[in-house]
């Protein structure tokens, strides 16, 4: 079965990997290094990211650049759910990988965004150089080229959102939560 599918796999993966269009999502200092990567000295357009889309319904890569706080978390979750499949996430900067400089003593920073959404590539440094961001995009392209149409179900399952039950938030299966509050839960019908 694999022999028949392999050329379809090759074409699909090649076309997805070489035209990743990111979403403009920059919260903090890492956003300036992302802008510096778009400018003319280090050009991201030669790797396929020709434009940065403004709306999440037209993008397929989310580069999360900047610190995420408790007030911003429901908005990040809502943006991730609005993106169509297949979608990928790069966690850029030390604050998104595990809390960064604020991990010991701050009262309002989330220690790493992989507690909320599933992450594909982690990129530490504070802030990462433009060459480091280009290296992360190359590694993501290598990861995409190893996928296959037959393992599509595993891919979708591993990219579903699983939040912690003990923290009073959410559920499993097909129901996704979009409003994170302490006492009220509002659920929406999920798309699988």
């Amino acid at each position: 079965m694999n022999i028949i599918i392999s050329s379809i796999d090759y074409i699909l993966n090649w076309s997805r990997a070489n035209s990743l269009w990111p979403l403009t999502f920059a919260t903090s200092c890492c956003g300036i290094e992302m802008m510096q990567t778009v400018a003319s000295d280090n050009d991201i357009a030669r790797f396929g990211s020709e434009v940065f889309r403004g709306s999440p319904r037209q993008a397929d890569l989310l580069i999360c650049a900047g610190t995420i706080t408790h007030k911003m978390a429901p908005i990040l979750l809502r943006l991730y759910q609005q993106m169509p499949e297949p979608k990928y996430v790069i966690a850029m900067g030390a604050c998104t990988c595990g809390g960064g400089m604020f991990a010991e003593t701050s009262y309002s920073v989330i220690r790493g965004i992989d507690k909320i959404i599933p992450v594909d590539i982690y990129l530490p440094m504070c802030p990462p150089r433009p060459e480091a961001l280009l290296d992360a995009i190359r590694k993501l392209q290598g990861k995409i080229k190893k996928e296959s149409v037959l393992t599509r179900k595993d891919f979708v399952n591993s990219h579903k959102i699983k939040l912690k039950e003990e923290c009073g938030l959410l559920v499993d299966g097909d129901i996704y939560i979009t409003q994170l509050g302490v006492n009220t839960l509002q659920t929406e019908a999920g798309e699988s």
Binding site: T27, T67, T69, I75, F102, T105, S106, Y107, S108, V109
Partner: peptide, 9 residues
């Protein structure tokens, strides 16, 4: 949306 608590730290 970006309050990190610099003064308390």
């Amino acid at each position: 949306y970006l309050h990190r608590g610099m003064e308390k730290m």
